[in-house]
Structures are given as C-alpha cells and as structure tokens.
C-alpha cells in the first residue's frame, strides 16, 4: 500500500462513519415507526437535527467545570479514532498495526469514562444517576467484551482487526466454529448493553428516572449536544460494523482494487441494513428489563463468552 492509498482509505473511513451513522439511526427509527403503525421521521431527520444543534447556543450549567465542555469533543475524537481501526468495506486498514481490537475497546471505555464524569459534573441528580448506571453496565460489559475478543483472537490467532478479517475471510470454516458462534452471541448482548438499546436502555424514553445514557446528556445543548448525539450514533455504527464484519466477514474487500471496494460497500450496506432491521424488530417486541436484571443478562453473556473459550480448548 502506498501512502496515497493509505491516506485515502483513512479519509474514506472517517467520511463513512460521519456520514452514514445518522442514516443508520434514521433507518432504525423509521423501521420501528413502521412496526408501530406510523410513518416515522424523514430519512434525513438526524442531519436536520445536527445542523440545528450546531446553530444553537450552548447553555452550560454554572456548576459545570471544563470537564463538561471537554467531554463532547473527546467523545467525538475517540469515535473518529476508532473509525480508523474498524473495517467497514475493506480489511486494508492503513493504521491497523497501531493498535488492535483491545485499543478499540479501551477507547470506547475512555469516552464512557468521561461521559460519566460529565454526568456528575453539573451536580444534577439525573446526571449522577446516569453515570452511576452507565458505569455499572460498562463495568459488567467489559469482561464479556474482553472474553469475546479473546475468543475471536483464538480463532483468528490475532488481535489486529485486519488480520482477523483476512484470516476469517480466507477460511469460512472458522466462522462455523462453535467458539466463534458463542462469541458472537456474547458480543451481541454486549453490543446492546454498550450502545444503550432495549432491553437494557430505552433510547426513546421520556422518563428521566429510568434513563441511562440519556440521563447523562440531559444537560447538554447546542454544539455540545450535537457532538454527544453524533458520537452516540457513531458508537452504534461502529459496534454494528464490528459485529457484522467480525462474525460475517463476507464481502469485506481484501485487496486494493476498485471493484472489490464497490462490492464491499454494497455488501456492507446490506449487512448494516439487516442489523438495523434486527434492532428495530427487537426493540418492537421487547420491553426494558428491570435495571437489576441487566447484570443477569451480562453475566449470561459472560458465561457464554467463557464457554466459547472453553469450547475452543475442548473441541
């Protein structure tokens, strides 16, 4: 890969995550609305929302410190950084050697860490509530992530994502390995917990006492809110990309030619659409579990991930 190609791929990665994550959110919202018997918001509603937020003033609590102002930018940059390491349509990621899947997970944790701090920063009881709950869930989701990642890297014998995709993509037999399937199940649950979807968190709730992610961002407005919302969408996008491409690496371009890029893009779009459909369907048929059932769910996913590893050694 020459430097121009590397640079171009990096830029395209950033553009995709910035541009496509609102569409993904829009897709989920529209599908859910349809299942509820409504038309739902227009396709470009998230863009309209962002454009508007960016044009509004930001109201900041008198109690808040620089942490509050800093967090949205940090989150945004973290998501952009992660986007350089997550395969969308190609496995030829220019900076792959800089860090693997562990780096991705810890940058997610970094953004969660600061978001939780910003929840506490304003002194609002709701913010504290959100960060306490978010950190509880993050603390319990973390081990599952690590174990699921462990399982994947056992199967693919690497923690670097490009390598994982290349190896899994070249031997589809690996995908039907029980370890890989169990890891997939665990990763699905963790994805739901980390991105705040039902049945763990309800992204559309108006009840401040039940909120998790929303409670932390209740104080944000204007450009800060735009960045926080956008980051949350990107996080969902990134998690779904990881989920689909790590476990279904079909179609991810493994060479540097235009045709495979185009094919990769199309297949990627199809995969994400299916994932969005699955989320919309789940969120229609499920309710939100009681908050102290979430640990049971996560413990279950932890057990599945552990089983994945054990199955690797035993089978």
């Amino acid at each position: 890969m020459d430097y121009v190609a590397k640079f171009l791929i990096a830029v395209v990665q950033l553009l995709i995550v910035l541009g496509a994550s609102p569409v993904l959110v829009s897709l989920i919202r529209r599908l859910k609305a349809r299942l509820q018997g409504r038309l739902g918001p227009p396709w470009f509603q998230p863009y309209y929302d962002l454009a508007k937020y960016f044009q509004k003033e930001s109201v900041v609590s008198e109690t808040a410190s620089w942490i509050f102002n800093f967090t949205p930018y940090l989150q945004f940059v973290c998501m952009l950084l992660i986007a350089l390491f997550v395969p969308f349509y190609t496995a030829m990621l220019p900076l792959d050697a800089t860090g693997g899947i562990i780096v991705i997970m810890y940058f997610f944790l970094l953004s969660t860490f600061f978001l939780a701090l910003s929840g506490l920063d304003t002194g609002s009881a709701f913010g504290g509530m959100g960060s306490s709950r978010e950190m509880t869930i993050a603390a319990l989701a973390e081990p599952t992530i690590i174990l699921a990642v462990f399982s994947i890297s056992l199967v693919a014998n690497s923690t670097n994502i490009s390598t994982i995709i290349l190896r899994l993509g070249s031997d589809y037999g690996l995908l039907f390995n029980p370890t890989h399937l169990l890891a997939f199940a665990a990763f699905v649950i963790v994805t739901i917990a980390e991105t705040g979807r039902l049945p763990v968190d309800n992204p559309t709730t108006h009840l401040e006492l039940t909120m998790i992610h929303e409670a932390m961002i209740l104080e944000y407005s204007g450009r800060h809110l735009a960045l926080v919302e956008w980051s949350a969408w990107m996080k969902l996008f990134l998690f779904l990309s990881l989920l689909t491409n790590l476990f279904f690496p079909w179609g991810v371009a493994t060479s540097l030619d235009l045709l495979s890029f185009v094919a990769g893009l199309v297949i990627f779009a199809v995969k994400l659409t299916l994932a969005a459909g699955a989320i919309a369907f789940m969120e229609t048929i499920l309710a939100k579990v009681r908050i102290f059932r979430v640990p049971e769910l996560l413990a279950g996913s932890f057990a599945i991930a552990l089983l994945a590893i054990i199955s690797f050694y035993v089978l």
């Binding site: 918001p41 509603q45 109201v59 108006h206 009840l207 944000y220 809110l225």
Partner: peptide
Amino acid sequence: ERFGLHIVASPRH
C-alpha cells in the same frame, strides 16, 4: 415525527 416534530426530555434539548 414525520414533520420533524419531537418531544424531548430536557429543556436543554
């Protein structure tokens, strides 16, 4: 929602 009208939880939003 089809017109972009949406109820939000916080006056900040």
